[in-house]
Design a protein around this nucleic acid. Structure first.
Length: 582
DNA sequence: AGCCCACGGGG
DNA sequence: GTGTACGTGGGCT
């Protein structure tokens, strides 16, 4: 048995001899092979679903006919302990074949947790967190240390362990392609790729093109085919952990892929030697490179920078306060056909773009990485999820930890909730205005009023919180699932903040600040989700109760503020504005 | 007012 | 891939 420690970058599964094999993609951190990649294979994890039977024994008999492995267990479901059957399958795909068959059985009430992708289930059940250090024991199948892309293929023989955060810097490589057309956006069927530029956080910078240049950082390939081969070689030799682009899910990678196909260049970019894959990720495309984390910063910017628009230029200006060298799209074609000063400027522009991407990545990714370490889903996925989904995956992990059965997904119709309290603004130009923000108080309301789908009761019981206006009743004890998670998040954040006050090491301070920021995001997202029908713990009652208590507090706080000399001039759901009278 | 659809961003 | 999902603003009815 050998032991390997690595930063867990990504995870997926493949099928070998009809058996699912989990693949953990990592970057080794121990002395031998430090920095090189590892693919750890785990063949021992099996897919499963839960069945909620109306009669356990009948159900076991009925399932025996299907020759499935069945285990009895008890889980909390909506506040009550119930009997469940855990059915283990041979392959994740069996779910499709069996879901309906199982549902048809007379003894089966419903199927639970049947839509959790296999690799996510693995991360949750094994307590593993991507972007953390993971330790595995087992056997090296193949380790080519001498080759430049030396990577280790490893067979996992015992439970992998999560060892916590790594301070190791990851190798991030940004790229950017240029193509042009006299009449607007380049057309992939007609217009070749003319420039590909790279920039990494390790100081690597390069512009590859099919023309010649006087600049040192520009390298010429004789034709587009060899330019693309250069691209592939660069990715393999730089061996990045993270690949960054700007709108690369929608532009650079699809374009590159189609051009490469046309010219018959295999885009072998993956750590396992696999080609670039473009997959459907929800509504949009996502470009997948196995073993590396491709992040399209454009989506990150749209989500995290509240700007009127999100061009690279605008985002760069916002984050760094300076203008990036810019060539308007319609001038690219003429610049490319210039051969002199303007062509050199085009190379500079391409490099400026890709360097901007690296800088934005260095600034914005640490928070996403911190969220990944808390939520425990792959960074690739996290970068493509909204904050609501991130919270949901966090809750699914917590549900597993607390032995709570996760609710099934709800239908997808939306209902309107009564809005917040609005006080018409006092007309006039006000100065010396104070804003009282309540958003951060909603999580406290969830905890203090124990607002959760599993604490909501029909009849009035002795020990309950009653929501203003609606009269919804929530048990005071035991603590509900959502309040317990929110409570721990708040507590955890409070801890980080007090540690920040003690901290004297600026690096540690920075880490703590990121962690508390990530925790804040998760907590402040939760209350709004009660109102989303796509949320597994969706509850109109919880949603209305929170805002009702919020209005109540808002009203009372406004009254209270007047005792201190404030005069509220405008209020909405989340807070109010007041002027301080002297 | 409410519904449907297209857009964002990349060159 | 144990799929399936974003927010918004404009035009139209």
């Amino acid at each position: 048995m050998e032991t390997k420690q690595f930063v867990l970058l990504d995870i997926d599964y493949i099928t070998k001899n009809r058996i699912p094999v989990i693949r953990l993609f990592g970057k080794l951190i121990e002395e031998n092979g430090e920095g090189s990649k590892i693919i750890a294979l785990d063949r021992r994890f099996k897919p499963y679903i839960y069945i909620h039977p109306n009669n356990v024994d009948d159900c076991i008999k009925e399932l025996a006919v299907l020759e499935l492995e069945v285990e009895k267990l008890r889980r909390k479901d909506n506040g009550k302990l119930k009997n469940f059957l855990k059915v283990t399958l041979k392959h994740p795909q069996d779910i499709y074949k069996l879901r309906d068959k199982i549902l048809d059985l007379k003894s089966v009430e419903e199927i639970r947790e049947h839509d959790i992708p296999f690799y996510r289930r693995y991360l949750i059940d094994k307590g593993l967190f991507p972007m953390n250090i993971v330790e595995v024991h087992g056997k090296v199948l193949n380790f080519n240390r001498s080759s430049s892309d030396g990577k280790c293929i490893f067979e996992v023989h015992s439970e992998p362990q999560n060892l916590g955060s790594s301070l190791k810097e990851l190798n991030m490589l940004s790229f950017n392609i240029e193509a042009c057309n006299p009449d607007g956006m380049p057309k992939v069927k007609e217009d070749p790729i003319i420039i590909i530029s790279f920039s990494s956080n390790q100081g690597f910078q390069k512009v590859y093109t099919t023309k010649t240049s006087s600049s040192d950082s520009v390298e010429t390939s004789p034709n587009e085919k060899e330019l693309i081969e250069k691209y592939v070689n660069t990715i393999q030799s730089e061996d990045p952990d993270i690949i960054l682009g700007y709108n690369s899910d929608r532009f650079d990678f699809p374009y590159l892929k189609e051009r490469a196909e046309k010219l018959d260049v295999p885009l072998k970019l993956g750590v396992d030697g696999s080609s670039l894959k473009i997959v459907n990720n929800g509504r949009r495309n996502a470009s997948v490179i196995k073993g590396r984390i491709h992040i399209d910063l454009y989506s990150n910017m749209r989500r995290n920078l509240p700007l009127e628009y999100h061009t690279l230029k605008r985002v760069y200006k916002e984050l760094f306060g300076e203008d990036k060298l810019e060539i308007p799209g319609h001038e690219v074609y003429n610049s490319w056909n210039d051969d002199g000063e303007r062509l050199e400027r085009l190379f500079k522009y391409s490099l400026a773009d890709v360097m901007a991407v690296t800088k934005i990545g260095e600034k914005m990714l640490p928070l996403s990485i911190e969220l990944t370490r808390i939520v425990g889903q792959p960074l690739f996925d996290m970068a493509r999820m909204g904050s609501g989904k991130q919270v949901e995956w966090y809750l699914l992990r917590k549900a597993f930890e607390y032995e709570n059965m996760a609710p099934n997904k709800f239908g997808s119709y939306l209902r309107d909730v009564v809005g917040g309290h609005v006080k018409e603004p006092v007309k006039g130009l006000h100065t010396n205005i104070y804003y009282f923000d309540f958003r951060s108080l909603y999580p406290s309301i969830i905890v203090s009023k124990n607002i959760s789908p599993d604490t909501l009761v029909e009849e009035r019981i002795e020990d309950c919180h009653i929501a203003p206006e609606f009269g919804y009743k929530f048990r005071k004890t035991p603590q509900g699932f959502i309040p317990s998670v929110v409570g721990k998040l708040l507590e955890n954040r409070f801890q980080k903040k007090s540690m920040m006050k003690e901290s004297e090491d600026p690096r540690e301070f920075q880490m703590l600040n990121l962690q508390q920021e990530a925790l804040k995001r998760l907590t402040s997202t939760i209350y709004g989700l009660y109102n989303h029908s796509t949320f597994r713990w969706y509850s109109i009652e919880c949603s209305e109760a929170i805002t009702a208590w919020g209005r109540d507090f808002l009203q009372k706080t406004m009254e209270k503020s007047e005792e201190y000399g404030f005069k509220p001039i405008y209020a909405d759901t989340d807070g109010f504005y007041a002027i301080l009278e002297h």
